[in-house]
């Protein structure tokens, strides 16, 4: 492989990785606080891209209006899900919460089929995202840097929220101990809702960017990115926002590079993600950035 092709693959890997990272953050925030693997998260990715699609294609909104609107709508749906399906089960065995997440996931997917139709739709990129750029001899399509830059900006904003605001501090406290945080005067319900809102908004942003990169959307499109992002979250150490970003980039780059270097293994592309996941779990169960927690007896 020559250097140019390598750079092309690298940029491709980074943009895929930034999408995984965006989606992984939602998983990790919810897990960090509620210890819930929110399997419905991937379907919010689908929802976000569909709302954006309909905003542009049906309501003729310009993209700069349709995309933020889609993020808002998805964030709202995230809040509704948390309030109606997860909150009542918070004090019950975790399998109930998990099953609720599975049920919500099935519900979103099949509502998607009912409302949007099962046939894939062609997502139209805004024109300026479709130009060929020539960066120092490497030609890439303009959406690749746009995806990466958008993701980085969103990460920056998120880190600001988490580390520089009161709500972010409360979120970090919640992930240590929900009850004690409540006793310190934090409105835990509100903060959990806020975390869901942030996670869902990022999932929607990830979904729109995903549709820009792979412009075919269908009601089950969220399943694979969701699962991959979940793996990325575990790789980085589930419950750790910085870890989710690192895990996402790592997974995206490794996936693209393995296929680039060993094209004959492309059929096993998805298997690599799982193999890395399992190996990591066996040798460092808490992930790259996860904290080792002492066992309570």
């Amino acid at each position: 492989m020559n250097f140019e092709a390598f750079l092309q693959n690298l940029s491709n890997g980074i943009s895929l990785g930034s999408l995984y990272a965006l989606i992984a953050i939602g998983y990790t925030m919810v897990y960090g606080i509620l210890r819930l693997i929110n399997f419905a998260h991937g379907d919010l990715v689908m929802l976000g891209s569909y709302v954006a699609f309909y905003g542009v294609a049906m309501f003729m909104l310009p993209w700069w209006l349709a995309f933020p609107l889609a993020i808002l709508v998805t964030a709202g749906v995230g809040i509704v899900i948390e309030r109606s399906a997860y909150k009542p089960l918070r004090d019950f065995p975790r399998i109930n919460l998990f099953t609720a997440a599975v049920a919500v996931s099935f519900l979103l997917e099949n509502l998607g089929i009912v409302i949007f139709g099962g046939r894939p739709k062609a997502f139209e990129r805004p024109a300026f995202m479709d130009q060929m750029l020539n960066l120092g001899g490497v030609s890439i399509v303009s959406y690749t840097p746009i995806i990466i830059i958008t993701a980085l900006v969103l990460f920056g904003l998120l880190l600001l929220v988490i580390y520089r605001t009161k709500a972010g501090m409360a979120m970090r406290a919640l992930s240590k101990d929900i009850e004690a945080t409540g006793l310190m005067g934090v409105n835990t319900d509100k903060i959990i809702m806020f975390a869901f809102m942030l996670g869902s908004a990022l999932a929607a942003a990830g979904g729109i960017l995903w549709a820009i990169k792979f412009p075919q959307i269908n009601p089950l499109m969220g399943v694979m990115p969701g699962l991959k992002a979940f793996i990325a979250a575990v790789l980085g150490g589930i419950g750790n926002v910085g870890g989710a970003m690192i895990g996402g980039f790592l997974l995206g780059i490794v996936e693209i590079m393995i296929v680039a270097f060993f094209p004959e293994l492309s059929g096993y592309r998805d298997a690599f993600a799982y193999a890395i996941l399992i190996l990591l779990l066996l040798f460092r169960p808490t992930g790259i950035m996860g904290e080792v927690q002492a066992e309570k007896v």
């Binding site: 049920a103 099935f106 519900l107 099949n110 009912v114």
Partner: peptide
């Protein structure tokens, strides 16, 4: 026909069972 409606009903039912018959 409404494809997907069966699983919509099933998932709502599953949610109801989990929420009310815990």
């Amino acid at each position: 026909g409404i494809p997907g409606m069966r699983m919509v009903i099933f998932s709502i039912l599953l949610l109801v069972v989990i929420l009310f018959y815990r």
